[in-house]
């Protein structure tokens, strides 16, 4: 690693210039909570590192045209404390608040959570359930928008080209008739990596007491988080009562059994997800 070069752009145009030097063995550095550890453990030795920590233009949360715009270098602490996020995408507030420790939340960024593409990354199922789009920029300044599902292709793998960087997360705000939540289960109560996580978004009709536009994001089951369209279909239009919580729990357990057949963690996860489903449901009411 003796020859590693670190570029430290201070704004977006310097970032574009820096990206021109990017090659397959270069890395973007944001908060460092994944990358610095990977480098220290020799799991990763980039020739070139582009440090985003000076690019202040990528740290923001804005509400514009019915969308939340979150800069890629925004930390979990900033997200957790943001009132727009709390009001319009509560499940993201809850996920940010449950990530790591205070120290990790102060350094770790939303762009880094996506870029790291860990199967257990907590914001990933949340962004899927919120139908977020991810804005990406390349060395020529060309901008593209992708779904999280297109961007993340496997465990630790993204479809980003080496001269591309995530610049922004765009989330359509949830209307006042929506409820959302995020729950996770790890090996201890706080400061823990998810063994299972669920993001749940529903549109609630309080006159009929029914739910629609149900969105279920699941993480830490298999190599990549996913939307559980089967379970969403089952729940759409149903009465929001205790029976439905039971259905959610049983059906998610079925999803786990289908997703990771024969995996050593299956006996644990297919039971544990039931409790987590009940927690998620309880948070919605």
């Amino acid at each position: 690693m003796g020859n590693t070069v670190v570029l430290t752009p201070d704004n977006l145009s310097e970032l574009r210039e820096a990206l021109k030097q990017a090659a397959p063995n270069s890395k973007i550095l944001a908060g460092g909570t994944d990358l610095v550890l990977a480098m220290h453990e020799n799991r990763c030795s980039p020739d070139l590192i582009i440090d985003l920590s000076g690019v202040k233009e990528l740290k923001y949360v804005r509400l514009e045209d019915g969308h939340l715009h979150i800069g890629a270098v925004t930390t979990f602490t900033q997200i957790k404390e943001n009132e727009f996020v709390r009001k319009h995408a509560l499940c993201l507030t809850e996920a940010a608040a449950l990530i790591g420790s205070n120290q990790i939340r102060n350094a770790g960024t939303i762009g880094g959570n996506i870029g790291n593409a860990s199967p257990a990354g907590d914001t990933i199922p949340v962004l899927m359930a919120l139908e977020a789009r991810i804005r990406v920029m390349d060395s020529l300044g060309q901008v593209e928008e992708k779904d999280v599902d297109e961007l993340i292709v496997g465990s630790g793998k993204t479809s980003l080209k080496c001269d591309q960087v995530i610049t922004e997360v765009i989330i359509p705000v949830l209307g006042d008739d929506y409820r959302s939540t995020f729950v996770k289960l790890g090996s201890r109560r706080a400061v823990t990596i998810s063994k299972l996580n669920i993001a749940l978004v529903v549109k609630y009709n309080h006159v009929l007491n029914t739910i629609s536009d149900v969105r279920v994001g699941l993480g830490a089951i298999g190599v990549k988080a996913f939307r559980d369209r089967r379970v969403e279909e089952i729940l759409n239009g149903q009465q929001a009562d205790d029976h439905l919580a039971q259905v959610l729990a049983e059906e998610l357990s079925m999803t786990v059994q289908k997703a990771i057949p024969g995996r050593y963690s299956l006996p644990y996860k297919k039971e544990a997800i039931k409790g987590l489903a009940h927690d998620a449901w309880a948070n919605l009411s």
């Binding site: 670190v6 430290t8 550095l29 460092g32 550890l37 220290h40 990790i104 102060n106 350094a107």
Partner: peptide, 21 residues
């Protein structure tokens, strides 16, 4: 843990060039 610009962070996860300024 150290404090950088008012925030507690783990200094084992920060790359030295990140503390410029």
């Amino acid at each position: 843990t150290v404090i950088i610009d008012g925030e507690a962070v783990n200094s084992c996860l920060v790359l030295a060039p990140q503390v410029r300024g």
